[in-house]
Design a protein around this nucleic acid. Structure first.
Ligand SMILES: [Mn+2]
Ligand SMILES: [Mn+2]
Ligand SMILES: [Zn+2]
Ligand SMILES: [Zn+2]
Lengths: 128, 128
DNA sequence: TGACATATTGCGAATTATTCGCAATAATGT
DNA sequence: ACATTATTGCGAATAATTCGCAATATGTCA
């Protein structure tokens, strides 16, 4: 939850928005959500804070190839991945044991693994 | 290799470029590569063809969160994943057994898995 | 081989996501 | 309350990707 140095209104609103929406959300979705609550935070500020939250490890960046980034709070639910429905864009959390996977990569290529993202693409029940 | 209905100059050039560069490349990189060969294909046409190649399963879209998409030919090398160096942007192919992973996801959530992308982030030898 | 039908290209403009510069403002320590 | 300065709002700037449309190239068939 360490974002910047000051606990501002914008940060409270952004954090609360992501928490309440409870799924990987885009900057624009955060903006819209806040507005629904008759409050407002400039889009540029939302981007700046998401950047900070990412650097301070408060959020994960999730990519589905939509041409934009999505963000999700890191705490609460542990490490997990997602199912993205190519039909409707619905997103589902999935958990799985993956120690083997990770170990297979450690040290290979001489890389130091900082993190990894695993995304699955398919069709949800409604879209099949 | 089935892209569109006609085997055009643009398609030959784009395909060859991706093949020769032999790594996940962006639309702009394809454009630049073709230009080096004293030939040219409009960027819009490159985007249109990458879209087609993706739909016809000739290329994979690979995302590293750089704010743009990368494409890689599907044939030749089998299914594999990548290591992306956050320091220099270097990309390495990696292979691994993952039958377990996939099986864990099949049927869960009632989703039909179409494909998945697994990306690792870290630092390559030069950047550590 | 040459003309036709139309898939595809080039080009410029439009979109969308994200970033920047900077002056105004709000958060924190004294 | 005051000063310091991190942060915001705003408008403009970028960067990636998409569109509309007239010009062109490709595959087909007479
Ligand atoms: Mn999630
Ligand atoms: Mn590869
Ligand atoms: Zn769906
Ligand atoms: Zn590197």
């Amino acid at each position: 939850m360490k974002i910047g140095k000051r606990y501002t209104q914008a940060r409270k609103r952004i954090f609360t928005a992501i928490e309440k929406m409870d799924k990987p959300v885009s900057a624009q979705e955060i903006y819209d959500y806040i507005k629904q609550n008759y409050e407002e935070v400039d889009l540029a500020s939302i981007y700046r804070n998401l950047e900070l939250m990412n650097k301070s490890d408060a959020v994960n960046v999730i990519l589905f190839g939509e041409g934009k980034k999505r963000y999700e709070l890191k705490n609460k639910k542990g490490h997990h991945h997602h199912l993205f429905c190519e039909g409707c864009g619905d997103i589902k959390d999935i958990k799985m044991k993956e120690e083997n996977l990770i170990n297979n990569v450690k040290d290979s290529q001489g890389f130091v693994i900082k993190k990894h993202n695993l995304e699955f693409f398919g069709l949800c029940p409604n879209c099949q």
